[in-house]
Design a protein around this nucleic acid. Structure first.
Lengths: 182, 182
DNA sequence: AAAGACATGTAAAACGTTACATGATTGC
DNA sequence: GCAATCATGTAACGTTTTACATGTCTTT
C-alpha cells in the first residue's frame, strides 16, 4: 500500500474517467477541483512515475498530439482502481483549512480597524470573482444531471457556491461591525 | 525580513497580546484558532528559537510555574511588532483549503452511491460537533464585545458558524440528491 | 526569429507532522 | 511508586511548491 499521498488519489480518480497525460491532469485539476484541491507538475509527474512502478497506472495510447512535444498518456490498472476504491470507502477524510485571511482578522486588534477592513475587502473581491465562475459551472452542470458523474461534479460545485455565498454574507456583517468602531 | 513562515505570525500575534511559553502557545492555537489554523510543537519551538535569534521575540519573566518542568516565556520585541504589523497591512492572504471529503465525493461515481453518503455522514457528524462548540464560543464572546479584541475573536468565530451551517445545509441537499439515485 | 502554448521531468528548498527523548512535579 | 500533566526540544520523514532544464510546434 502506498503512503498517504493524496495526489495519487486525485490522479487515479481522474484516470478512472479517462486516459490522461500529466499535463492534462494538471489542467483538469486547475479547472475542476482547484477550489478545494491543488496540484503542481512537481508532484504530478513523480506521482505518475511512482504509481507506474507500483502497477497502479500504465502508459496508454496517446491520442492526437495537439502540437508541441511528445505526450505520454496513462490509464488506470485494476490494481489502481482497487486502491482508489479502498480510499473512497474509508470515510475518514482530513479537511485541512488554512485561512490566512482569518488569521489576519483574528489579530486585527494589534493595528487600526481600516487594516482589517482592507483585508476583508481583498477577500471579498477574490471570492466574488470565484463565485461568478462557480455559478456558471453550476448552471451548466444542472442541465446535464442525467449523467451520473455530473451529479457528483454538481454537488462539489454546489458546496463551493454555498460556502462562498456564506463568506460574502459574513464579509458584509463583519465590515458593518468593524465600521462601528472607526 | 523573515521568509514566509506563517507560524511566525501566529506566534507574534499571540505574543502581542500577552507573554507566553511555547506550551501555552500550543494551547492558545488549539482552543482559539484551530478551526482555521493549526500548529504543532515541532513547528512552534523552532520558530521561537529562530525569532529570538532574529530579535523578533525575547525571553521574558516566567510567571507562576504551574508545576512541572521549567517554563520559558517569550515577549514580543518592537521589531517583532513591526514584522507583525507589516504582515497585517499586506492585504494579500493565501487561503489554502484541502477538503478530502469533496475529493472523495467528486470521484464518487467510481463506486456505489452509499459510499458517498457514508462520506457525507462522517463529515456531517464532525461538523455538527464542532458547530456546537463554535456556537458556545460565539455566545460567550457576544457578551463581552465591549473589549475591542473580543470583536475580532467574535468575527472569526462567526465565520466558522456561518460556514459550518452552510456545510450542514449542503450535506442535507447532497444526501437528498444522492438518495434519488439509489 | 521570437513568443507562446504544449509537454516532460528533476532538484532544491520550505514546511510541517510525528515520534521520540528528556525531565519535573503533583495527586492517587 | 505510578500515572498524568506540565514542559522543552530534536530528528526523521514525507509532501509539496518553486524554479530550473529541456524540447517541439504554431502563429505572428
Amino acid at each position: 500500500m502506498a503512503k498517504d499521498r493524496k495526489i495519487d488519489m486525485v490522479i487515479l480518480g481522474l484516470l478512472a474517467h479517462e486516459n490522461l497525460s500529466g499535463y492534462d491532469i494538471k489542467k483538469r485539476i486547475d479547472n475542476s477541483i482547484s477550489f478545494f484541491w491543488k496540484g503542481s507538475f512537481g508532484s504530478i509527474y513523480p506521482s505518475l512515475s511512482a504509481m507506474e512502478k507500483d502497477g497502479l497506472v500504465q502508459k496508454a495510447d496517446t491520442g492526437e498530439n495537439s502540437g508541441g512535444r511528445e505526450k505520454i498518456c496513462y490509464s488506470i490498472t485494476p490494481d489502481g482502481k482497487n486502491a482508489l476504491i479502498s480510499w473512497l470507502e474509508d470515510t475518514k477524510a482530513v479537511n485541512d483549512l488554512k485561512y490566512e485571511t482569518l488569521l489576519k482578522l483574528f489579530f486585527g486588534g494589534v493595528t487600526d480597524v481600516q487594516t482589517s477592513i482592507n483585508t476583508i475587502n481583498a477577500f471579498e473581491n477574490e471570492i466574488s470573482a470565484s463565485l461568478e465562475m462557480l455559478k456558471m459551472y453550476q448552471a451548466n452542470l444542472s442541465k446535464v444531471l442525467d449523467n451520473k458523474d455530473h451529479i457528483y461534479y454538481y454537488l462539489t460545485v454546489s458546496f463551493g457556491v454555498e460556502t462562498y455565498e456564506g463568506y460574502l454574507k459574513w464579509c458584509e456583517e463583519a465590515k458593518e461591525m468593524l465600521g462601528k468602531l472607526s
